[in-house]
Design a protein around this nucleic acid. Structure first.
Lengths: 149, 149
DNA sequence: ATATGTGCAAAACGTTTGCAATTGG
DNA sequence: CCAATTGCAAACGTTTTGCACATAT
């Protein structure tokens, strides 16, 4: 689904705050990128834009993704595959991930009690959290079965 | 400290199980690599071996690190720095990490109640865990102060 | 004898950068 | 006008690979 007016307000103010321009080209690309569900590599995003006839070079896409991640409109994930996967962050609640190494399915989870425990740990060590990454790698129900056939 | 006989037994059996050779060269390098404390990049490990006059080419080091990680003698970590950091796993208890983005200090933590919660989540989604990575990025007490001077 | 390991240089891979041309306010 | 953005190709840093030779069992 397209980006709401309210979300555009957030995007505009984040870009202003950072002093980055919202060119027509960028607005068109952002409209596409922040409408994507799931987790996508820079390469996939370049392809998506190409398919939608949105002209933007690979370098410019990388530059845009890096801004979007910096202002927290996207989240960059590492799933042990030597490339980043980007996920829309605007309009979504915080969550962590289960990753199936069989079929590469990504499942989101969230746990209030884990978050509370994290806070205790931060307090214990006097740390301030900026972000965290909690990923469980394993086998989903389907792949679990397949492994033993 | 050097690797104990008991630990060598584990190493030998893991290599046998996998059908990988424990050449004299590999034994010498493993002795050094699995004695390291902390978290080290492949590049750092190449340097450590060079300094100790242990002859092993960069390619061979990479091949060895990949075997050691595969058989769980090392753990490969990603701290959002575009390269892997390896940590000795043999003879150490499981733990997770706090990472200071100011001074790059890595602190280990562990929480039984987080592990229990994870088990609940795995059960809920029918997943089998192979491993997990739980990292909190932020500022350590020192860097927290410095940021506001 | 046959599998596996090794070193070298080259390739691969995702990502970043220098630069000249273009655009936006 | 000036500052920021763009596209291209080249550079980058880490990691992997092809191949000829060496080694282990």
């Amino acid at each position: 689904m397209p980006i709401s007016n309210k979300e555009w307000d957030i995007i505009v103010s984040k870009f202003n705050e950072k002093g980055s321009m919202l060119t027509k080209q960028r607005r068109t690309a952002i409209d596409e990128i922040l409408s994507l569900d799931g987790h996508h590599s820079a390469d996939e995003i370049v392809d998506v834009l190409k398919k939608k006839k949105i002209q933007m070079s690979r370098a410019t896409v990388y530059r845009l993704l890096s801004i979007l991640a910096e202002v927290n409109l996207l989240e960059a994930h590492d799933f042990d595959m030597n490339k980043k996967l980007y996920e829309r962050k605007v309009g979504k609640f915080h969550h962590d991930h289960l990753y199936c190494i069989g079929c590469r399915t990504i499942i989101e989870f969230s746990s209030e009690s884990i978050e509370r425990e994290q806070d205790k740990i931060l307090k214990k060590f006097g740390f301030i959290e900026i972000y965290h990454s909690h990923k469980i790698f394993g086998l989903c129900p389907d792949c679990k079965k397949k492994k033993f056939i």
